[in-house]
Design a protein around this nucleic acid. Structure first.
Lengths: 361, 361
DNA sequence: ACAGTATGAACGGACACTTGA
DNA sequence: CTCAAGTGTCCGTTCATACTG
């Protein structure tokens, strides 16, 4: 039914009859109704040029009547700008990413940008290429990479020509990144525990391929080294409470640790549960510190001492930086990092006194 | 630098010199390089028409060399299809919505669709209109409404002309919806508790404006009524653990309840924490059932008995239905609901024996 | 007549330039 | 000469149709 004058209603006013709407109203329709040229409609819409007030009103009224909405595709085609940013990640279902995405969405919306989410499947080769391809199909003005380890994927090629900002990523790479101060957070956790008198602090780390996990582990290591205390082996989890539980069983069995710094709150929860099952009291026998400060952490039993992480600010800063780079590709990419204060609750205490014996088994 | 022949390189091959890429390659560029017409390139891209194999190869090679990506805006303009679905909600940072969004994203991607997230701010009038306007700006082929109470907003007008599917929404409304079986889930929770011998079951509900919360509360009410047991007053929370904690204090103070069905796991967590603080043992003195079955619920103390909720299936079904409606607006909107089985863990038990006295204060 | 290929008009909006008071 | 409004071209694709060997 494209260009056929015979079988279609005249282009001028396609939805006049009460039937199904043929197509959305265009600038031309508005112009016709308002008795002006479509150029004038464009002026009114963009607000970038002078239009006489009376004319403007007529146009606005016509838009109202017809229910005119600008066609983003046409606008994007003409301007080369999509007013859309893409967010690329493994998953948006996980706590931290979800909060970051929400902040990104709000900040982008305030700036008049839409947000397109692009999921990279963890385990399929093809899907990876697909997601990135879609992102490269000239549909976004910029990209926030929310799971930076995606960059380690072989065969990955981020689209060139659009700016990319990495959320919580490796600053050594070729893209600018926005980071909360994970190092300070981890150090704060370790120092808190050492300050309570613990001889050393164990670490329940996130997965090896996570940059955030690596950073936290490195900061933990550095803090112990700086304090000159022995460095226990790292125990690895996968961010899940389940993995924390398994780690907790191992730690309880080993029976050496008096303090554990977990790389996120969910693992800390599983850890505490395993310790409880093993008859190890938290914080009486063993102190636990988490990371993230999820809203539930204060209601764990015991309430979890944890490092507060500001995902919202992270997301907002990513958008700010990205929009700056979109407007001015050579813009300064410095970004202020958000602090990561330690929230002390009930899961940490001085180690059990030597006098009382370590005999908790 | 638009149409000026004088000050611009000839349109034919703008990025030939090694300088900064002027603009992405177009079909015309590919066609020129391959020595065919751009129409032939279009055919190769769409695969919808016969092209001689040798020609096809030349075109594909040319696309490779130039790094050609189809311009989605131009395609959308020409076809009227955006291959994008919009997801509209209050927040994607909350647990359930985040998981649903992730499932939507994956399912949409598999079908070749992008996903645009549109956040409606809870408390600003203007922003609401803005979000919906953006969504209505002819940029999506369909919408999944993930927070159906958005529909209750005064002045809200969802764009017409694109199909809308509601996730977990009121089926009485004008849009088709996909629902997990919340009613069965809530009934299962209540029946489980009554089956354990509790005289009645209290309900810690979600916020009044949430349709999901309403449905769970209604099912709880119906189950009690069907059992012919007394119906305690509803206690309201806001989904947060904090609100669960406050409710828990009130319930502990009242001292009447022996069983509480909480409308989500996070409130159940706060509830249990408050009970513990008040010296009420769970499940010894009081049983608690949650709703959602978050991954952490098994690691609460005690492990939470809860109704399992399949957000992933919910999201997938929403996309399936929406794509069906996009392809065929009059398609059948029936959708199979996912079961919501009760997962029995450690937070439920028979009520304290009357003999032992109810005297826990 | 047949198989492939070339042609040119939309799609809706933006913008440089032009025209009318 | 200023300022509001109009004209015409182009953005990159798709699709119907005309063309060619």
């Amino acid at each position: 039914m494209r260009r056929g004058e015979p079988d279609t209603a005249p282009n001028g006013r396609p939805d006049a009859p009460g039937g199904a709407a043929t197509r959305p109203p265009s600038q031309a329709d508005v112009a016709a109704l308002a008795g002006v040229s479509s150029q004038t409609v464009s002026r009114v819409v963009s607000g970038r040029a002078k239009v006489e007030e009376a004319t403007r009103r007529r146009v606005v009224d016509a838009m109202q009547i017809l229910g005119y909405r600008a066609n983003t595709a046409a606008r994007a085609l003409a301007t080369g700008r999509f007013h859309t940013i893409g967010v690329l990640g493994f998953t948006f279902g996980a706590h931290g990413n979800a909060r970051t995405l929400q902040a990104i969405s709000e900040q982008a919306q305030d700036a008049g940008y839409s947000v397109t989410v692009m999921t990279v499947r963890r385990h399929t080769e093809g899907a990876l290429r697909e997601a990135v391809t879609a992102l490269g199909d000239q549909a976004v003005d910029g990209i926030v990479l929310i799971d930076p380890q995606i960059l380690d994927r072989p065969g990955l090629e981020l689209p060139t020509g659009v700016p990319v900002v990495i959320s919580d990523g490796n600053p050594d790479r070729r893209y600018p990144s926005v980071n909360n101060d994970q190092t300070a957070g981890a150090r704060g956790a370790v120092d808190h525990l050492l300050g309570l008198g613990h001889r050393t602090v164990w670490h329940l780390a996130g997965p090896r391929d996570s940059y955030a996990a690596q950073q936290r582990a490195a900061a933990w290591h550095a803090a112990l080294k700086a304090a000159g205390v022995p460095i226990p082996p790292i125990v690895y989890g996968d961010w899940s409470a389940q993995s924390g539980y398994e780690a907790g069983r191992a730690i309880a069995t080993a029976g050496e640790a008096t303090a554990v710094f977990a790389a996120n709150d969910h693992m800390a929860l599983g850890l505490m549960r395993a310790l409880d099952d093993a008859g190890v009291s938290v914080p009486g026998d063993l102190s636990v510190v988490g990371f993230d400060d999820v809203a539930e952490a204060a209601f764990f039993k015991p309430p979890l001492t944890t490092v507060h992480y500001d995902f919202e600010q992270l997301g907002r800063e990513c958008v700010s930086l990205l929009l700056r780079l979109i407007a001015e590709p050579s813009a300064d990419a410095r970004v202020a990092v958000a602090p990561t204060p330690l929230i002390v609750r009930g899961s940490t205490a001085p180690p059990p006194s030597r006098a009382g014996g370590s005999g908790r088994h």
